[in-house]
Simulated scan of single mutants.
Amino acid sequence: MRITPARRLPVAVAAAVTGTLTWAPTATAQPTEPTPSAAVTDTPQPDAGSIGIVKKDPAGDILKGAAFLLFDATGQEAGSGTTDAQGQLTFTGLAPGVYRLKETTSGSPLHDVVADQDVIVTPGATARLTIVDPFKPAQVLLKTKDNKTGKLLPGSTVNIGSGEKTLLTLTTGPKGTATGELAVPSRKAEFWVKQVKAPKGYELSKPVKTFTAGPGAPITVTVTNTKTATTPKPTEKPTDQPTATPSMPTDSPAGSTSGGSASNPPATGTPDTDSSVISSADGTDPTSPKTPGGSLAHTGADATPWILGGAGLMLVGGIGAIAAARRRTGSEPEPDENADTN
């Protein structure tokens, strides 16, 4: 018995499913790419952050044209820009982390740049900064002069300040000048200058002067001093020697009567060897060195009372001798004229 083969169908095969004949698509012979596994997923990137800058000066005025550079934690440049007419600048699309902000120019001839600073960027947030550029300091030149000759004087120290605060101290050098930078808080400010140490040989300048200065402007401050008053030197140099040599007192008083005892001769400018040795009042050896010629002997005590006492005794003795002689003369008998001479 001949069996006829079943008719081939290119796109379907017969299959019995619960007693019903159905058609199902055949599998293709070409290989297909594997389906990605559900366990493999992409790591989501964190939200980026940003930095917003507002630029001002100490007076509160907006500064445009200030240039900045931004560096990441590795030192690579992450951005750059300048402030606009409103003084603003924004760095966007920054990964979270720490950045270094550097101002390269203030955009103004009156203002200085600020120091570098670190900025922390957090995910999805803007770090906002208000940066104030200080005014450039004034350049001060100090001169101290002689008030009459105008000569520059070294060694002068002055304080310069505003209000009750001292901002700068300067001391003139060998050339009589000194320089320094004075912080200026506004476009035009007033300052005082006071001398606290005068140059050698000069009086302290007591008046307190004032002056005005602007940012970055040169200013010259001049202080004048007067020489210290000096006492005139004496025309003749004083000497220790006396101007006149005192005369020696005499041993006998003036006006002695005749007939008394003989008196000692008066002392001369150069005493002899015997009269030059006088016993001292304190009992020392009278053979002490003799006094040089032309000067009185030094006895340790004033000899004037002794001399006057001796002269008084001599005077009393002379008067007594005269009185005794007169008594003897009166007691002698007068010769008898009637006496026999044979």
Results as ranks from 00 to 15, higher is better:
323 A>S: 08
53 I>R: 01
218 P>C: 08
260 G>A: 11
29 A>I: 15
233 K>V: 11
61 D>I: 04
43 T>V: 14
294 G>M: 07
19 G>I: 10
327 R>F: 12
181 E>G: 08
167 L>D: 09
27 A>R: 12
44 P>Q: 06
292 P>C: 03
72 D>Y: 05
321 A>L: 15
253 P>G: 14
240 D>E: 14
43 T>L: 08
62 I>F: 08
49 G>F: 06
200 K>L: 04
68 F>G: 04
29 A>S: 15
37 S>E: 11
299 T>M: 06
158 V>R: 09
319 I>E: 11
180 G>Q: 03
132 V>E: 15
325 A>L: 14
58 P>N: 03
310 G>F: 01
212 T>G: 09
75 G>C: 08
266 P>L: 10
265 P>C: 06
204 L>Q: 09
59 A>W: 00
228 T>N: 05
48 A>N: 07
166 T>I: 14
166 T>R: 04
168 L>R: 01
321 A>W: 10
217 A>V: 10
168 L>W: 01
243 T>N: 14
68 F>W: 10
216 G>D: 08
282 D>A: 10
39 A>Y: 07
304 T>R: 14
207 P>R: 08
163 G>E: 05
196 V>S: 13
53 I>K: 01
7 R>G: 03
21 L>D: 12
208 V>K: 14
45 Q>N: 06
112 D>V: 08
11 V>K: 09
82 T>D: 07
25 P>E: 15
123 P>D: 12
201 G>F: 00
194 K>P: 03
303 A>W: 00
219 I>A: 13
72 D>M: 05
11 V>P: 00
167 L>M: 05
44 P>Y: 01
110 L>P: 03
342 N>C: 00
91 F>P: 13
102 K>M: 09
115 A>P: 00
209 K>H: 01
86 Q>R: 04
114 V>A: 07
315 L>R: 14
167 L>F: 04
205 S>Y: 01
69 L>Q: 11
164 E>A: 13
35 T>F: 05
292 P>D: 14
74 T>W: 00
56 K>C: 06
338 N>L: 06
294 G>I: 05
185 P>D: 14
287 T>C: 05
102 K>R: 13
118 D>M: 04
312 G>Q: 11
317 G>D: 13
219 I>P: 00
234 P>Y: 03
173 G>R: 15
171 T>I: 03
253 P>E: 11
116 D>V: 09
209 K>S: 04
272 D>I: 02
84 D>L: 02
272 D>K: 07
